[in-house]
Computed example of a mutant assay.
Amino acid sequence: MSQLKLGLPKGSLEKATIELFEKAGWAIKPAARNYFPEIDDSEVDCSICRPQEMSRYVESGMLDAGITGKDWTMENESEAVLVGDLVYSKVSRKPTRWVIAVAGNSEIKTLEDLEGKKVATELVNVTRKFFEERKINVDIEFSWGATEAKVVAGLADAVVEVTETESTIRAHGLRIIHELMQSNTQFIANKEAWDDPWKREKIENIFMLLQGALKADRIVGLKMNVAEEKLEAIVGLLPSLNAPTVANLYNTKWFSVETVVSEDIVRDLIPSLTKKGAEGIIEYPLNKVI
């Protein structure tokens, strides 16, 4: 039997990725201190590795496909096939941000003020290219972690660090002076695997269902019964991806109306629908929108 060797990101994205796969239809069971979690698909063999290393393993063929960050494919100048973007992070469905930050009381206010200064980061190549393009000479030092603390300890004048909520940045008393780039998760594939018809179809199917699960986030289905004379008023209230589905109820002058809407508007929409005459309203969650 053919198998797809799939890499899942270790660390901050691990939990969110496993939850996304579950919503898409795959149950992944991680084991303590085990880099090879179980998955309920005999055609997939999973490995967990750091996002920073994922593109290297995919390019070499050790993995057929994997999920990593756009930041790390750029950092490693990856030549893996980009299957597509998957915009999610550990706490949100938004891109993460790489920012340049300095101490709160620093005299550094602009990028130009960093001329001749030391910058600590894990994203060395991208940072170097960023400053070279602006002809600003900085001393870039690789950081193994706890990068924000480098400024606090006086080991660097600035840091380039990733953030979602800026809470860690603020907790260390740092101040952001510039956003270097935004990043999101990406599904990448090995070139030879991509040229294999079976593997390519498997990769494309997985990506499609993951995208469908992301599209379904915070979207719900609504279904209701509506009398014929109130149908136009009800349909006029309903937002929809396309148009609501309307079907006759058997042997009556009533209709079944079904649509999908943002979860954010349901609490205001349902009372409005009932006032216009909708009955038997059902709200239900969605796993995927394809």
Rank of each mutant, 00 (worst) to 15 (best):
L6M: 12
S12G: 00
L13H: 11
F21N: 02
A24G: 05
I28R: 09
K29T: 15
N34A: 05
N34Q: 06
F36M: 11
E38L: 12
I39L: 06
E43A: 11
E43T: 14
D45W: 14
C46N: 10
R50S: 13
E53H: 11
M54D: 07
R56Y: 09
Y57L: 15
V58F: 08
S60T: 11
M62V: 15
L63V: 09
A65I: 10
A65E: 05
A65C: 07
G66P: 00
T68K: 13
M74F: 11
E79Y: 03
L82T: 01
K90R: 05
K90Q: 11
V91C: 01
V91T: 14
S92V: 04
S92I: 01
K94A: 13
P95V: 02
I100P: 01
V102Q: 04
G104V: 02
G104I: 02
N105W: 06
S106W: 01
I108D: 05
D113A: 07
D113H: 08
K118G: 10
K118A: 13
A120K: 07
V124C: 10
T127C: 07
T127H: 03
R128T: 08
R128N: 07
K129H: 02
E133M: 02
K135L: 10
V138A: 03
A146N: 14
V151C: 08
G154K: 04
L155A: 05
D157V: 02
V160M: 08
V162P: 13
T163R: 10
E164G: 14
G173P: 02
R175F: 07
H178I: 00
L180D: 05
Q182E: 13
Q182R: 14
Q186P: 01
E192T: 07
A193V: 06
D195N: 15
K199C: 04
K199D: 09
K199R: 15
E201S: 07
L209D: 15
Q211S: 03
L214S: 06
A216I: 03
A216G: 04
I219E: 10
I219K: 07
K223E: 14
E232R: 15
E232D: 15
I234V: 15
V235F: 01
P244F: 08
T245Y: 11
T245Q: 10
V246W: 09
F255Q: 08
V257H: 13
V260N: 03
I265H: 03
I265A: 06
P271Y: 04
K275P: 10
G280W: 06
V289C: 10
V289T: 06
